Computed example of a mutant assay.
Amino acid sequence: MSALTLVSPQPGLEAASDLSDDALDYGRAALSENTMRAYRGDWLEFEAWCADRQRPHLPASPATVANFASSLASAGKKVPTIARKLAAVRFFHRGAGQ
Rank of each mutant, 00 (worst) to 15 (best):
M1T: 07
M1D: 12
M1E: 12
S2N: 12
A3G: 10
T5W: 09
V7E: 07
V7K: 06
V7I: 15
S8F: 04
S8H: 10
S8L: 10
S8V: 10
S8I: 11
Q10C: 04
Q10T: 13
P11V: 15
E14C: 03
A15G: 01
A15C: 05
S17R: 12
S17A: 14
D18V: 02
D21Q: 14
A23F: 01
L24K: 11
D25E: 13
D25F: 05
Y26W: 13
Y26V: 13
Y26T: 13
G27V: 04
G27N: 08
G27D: 06
R28Y: 08
R28L: 15
A29F: 11
A30W: 01
L31D: 03
L31T: 01
E33K: 10
N34I: 08
N34L: 07
T35K: 06
M36H: 09
A38L: 09
R40P: 00
R40W: 07
G41Q: 08
D42G: 01
D42Y: 05
W43I: 02
E45C: 07
F46W: 04
E47K: 11
W49N: 03
C50A: 14
A51H: 04
D52M: 10
D52W: 00
D52Y: 01
R53K: 08
Q54G: 04
Q54N: 14
R55K: 14
R55M: 13
P56W: 01
P56M: 07
L58P: 00
A60D: 01
T64Y: 03
T64Q: 06
V65D: 02
N67R: 15
A69S: 10
S70D: 09
S71A: 13
S71E: 14
L72V: 01
S74R: 12
S74T: 12
A75M: 05
G76L: 02
K77V: 01
K77R: 13
K77N: 12
K78H: 10
V79E: 11
P80E: 13
P80F: 13
T81Q: 07
R84G: 01
K85A: 08
A88L: 05
A88S: 10
A88E: 03
A88M: 06
V89N: 03
V89T: 05
R90I: 07
F91C: 08
F91G: 00
F91M: 09
H93S: 07
H93V: 09
G95C: 07
G95T: 03
A96D: 04
A96C: 06
A96W: 07
Q98T: 14
